[in-house]
Structure formats: structure tokens, C-alpha cells
């Protein structure tokens, strides 16, 4: 048991019945929240309280609760995944807050991420971008080649790995003042473009993924760098510069 005293908090939570209906901020009080509980556990406590009061619980996305699935979203006190760096909402703990605090909890805001209900948004635009090119075609004819048979420079393998740690949570879009998806798309473009297996389809990949990104209604990148700061996986702006190079070179040299 923690020696800390429980926290009494005022929560301002976005409630929205469905995509078609208008939403609004609602105010709730929660009391005696353990500073050791995670933010999602605090939300669970709020929901149990709402159920007991005969009200509808707040809908929010979550799955693994260990910072790897990318499901938990929430814009907390004006930042994606709340205060703290390199964490998702499930890794945010209530010790980051003080007794008596008011906490704003909102869904990701982007035209391309419509609200499904309350704090849940539809991030399938990311799936459609991935389907447009976020893969390597492996046309096997019986034998699969050993992955280690192709020599890859260590620093390139490291950069590709770093890009591949993107969990597609959408914090970059939520944090960007333009709701741009450049950090996500550039991470996905980079993880393939840096490796020999991905270079075969590199030109079509970047063109197709950027085309779908634009069609989905994400904004344009203005290099504020907010995405990089708020990204739970520390995806670097280097990837956006690489995607810019890949795209411009594909436009000139591609089919």
C-alpha cells in the first residue's frame, strides 16, 4: 500500500454519443485516487462510479496497457498522452498530478480521425495508408531466404529499427497544429526504404502512401516538431526529411 494520500480531482471529459451527434465537455469529480494508479485505472474508477450512479461510462480505447499496442489515446491537459515524455496514456501515472487538479481529457482531434464515441476515434485512415504501400511483397516460390544472408550496415539497421518502433497511436496527428500524419507515414516509409528488402518497391511505396495520406484529409507538415516531442516512441524528424527526399526523388525518377 502506498503511503501517499489519495487524490481528489476534477475531470473535464469530452462526451459524444456518436460520430453524427455533437459532443460537449462534462465535469466529474473523483476522490481518493491512488497516486500509484495509472491514468487508465483512474478512468476505470470513474467509469465504475458512473455505472453506480446509473450513468453511461466513458468510452475510451485501450488494450495492452503496457505501452506497446498504441490503442490508448486521449489528449490530457493539452498534450497527447498527457504530461511526460516517451510514454503512452497507460504508462502515465496519477503521481504526475496534484490533489485538487482539474484535468482536461479529450479525444484526438483531426478531421481524418472522426470521433466514434466519447474519447474513441476512428484511426482506420492509418490502416488505409499502410494498405497503400506499408509492406514488402514476398513472392516466395518454395524456399524462403535466410534473413541474415543479406548484409546490412549496422547504422541503417538501427535507423530502420528505430522507425519500426512506431506503434501507430496517432499522437503525432493529435499534437500537430495542422493534424499532419507526416511522422507516422515517414516512419513507415523509412523502415522499409532503409533496408534492401524494402528498396525494391521504395518509389511506388512513398508515392502511394503520400497520395492516400493527402486524400485522407491530414494537414501539411510545417516542421514545428511537436510530433517528435509527443511521440511515445521517440520517432525522429529525420524520418520526415528522409520521406521528403524519397518522395521528391521518386517523383523525378519514378515511372
Amino acid at each position: 500500500m502506498s503511503a501517499h494520500k489519495g487524490l481528489n480531482l476534477t475531470l473535464k471529459v469530452w462526451r459524444q454519443q456518436s460520430q453524427k451527434e455533437k459532443g460537449q465537455m462534462e465535469t466529474y469529480q473523483v476522490s481518493d485516487i491512488s497516486p500509484d494508479s495509472s491514468f487508465l485505472e483512474m478512468m476505470d474508477i470513474l467509469n465504475e462510479q458512473l455505472i453506480e450512479e446509473g450513468k453511461e461510462p466513458v468510452a475510451f480505447d485501450h488494450d495492452c496497457r503496457e505501452g506497446i499496442c498504441g490503442m490508448c489515446s486521449m489528449y490530457i491537459n493539452g498534450e497527447a498522452h498527457g504530461p511526460g515524455r516517451g510514454i503512452t496514456t497507460c504508462q502515465l501515472h496519477m503521481r504526475e498530478f496534484n490533489n485538487g487538479d482539474t484535468i482536461y481529457i479529450e479525444p484526438w482531434r483531426a478531421k481524418a480521425f472522426p470521433v466514434i464515441k466519447d474519447l474513441m476515434v476512428d484511426r482506420s485512415a492509418f490502416d488505409r495508408i499502410m494498405a497503400a504501400g506499408g509492406f514488402v511483397s514476398v513472392n516466395t516460390s518454395g524456399n524462403t531466404q535466410d534473413a541474415n544472408a543479406i548484409p546490412i550496415e549496422k547504422h541503417k539497421a538501427d535507423q530502420a529499427f528505430d522507425a519500426a518502433t512506431c506503434i501507430g497511436c496517432g499522437a503525432c496527428v493529435a499534437s500537430c497544429k495542422n493534424a499532419s500524419a507526416m511522422l507516422f507515414v515517414s516512419a513507415k516509409v523509412s523502415q522499409f526504404a532503409l533496408l534492401p528488402q524494402g528498396q525494391v518497391e521504395a518509389k511506388e511505396r512513398v508515392q502511394n502512401m503520400v497520395k492516400v495520406m493527402d486524400e485522407e484529409g491530414f494537414g501539411n507538415c510545417s516542421n514545428t516538431g511537436a510530433c517528435e516531442v509527443e511521440c511515445p516512441k521517440g520517432i525522429s524528424l529525420d524520418n520526415i526529411a528522409r520521406m521528403n527526399r524519397e518522395y521528391l526523388s521518386a517523383s523525378i525518377k519514378g515511372e
Binding site: K12, G78, P83, Y104, E106, T224, G225, A226, V229
Partner: peptide
């Protein structure tokens, strides 16, 4: 956003 802290990241 009802609450947005742009100054925290840019």
C-alpha cells in the same frame, strides 16, 4: 481542443 499546450512541444 478545449485545452491545448502548444508551448510544451514547439
Amino acid at each position: 481542443y478545449a485545452m491545448n499546450k502548444g508551448q510544451a512541444n514547439s
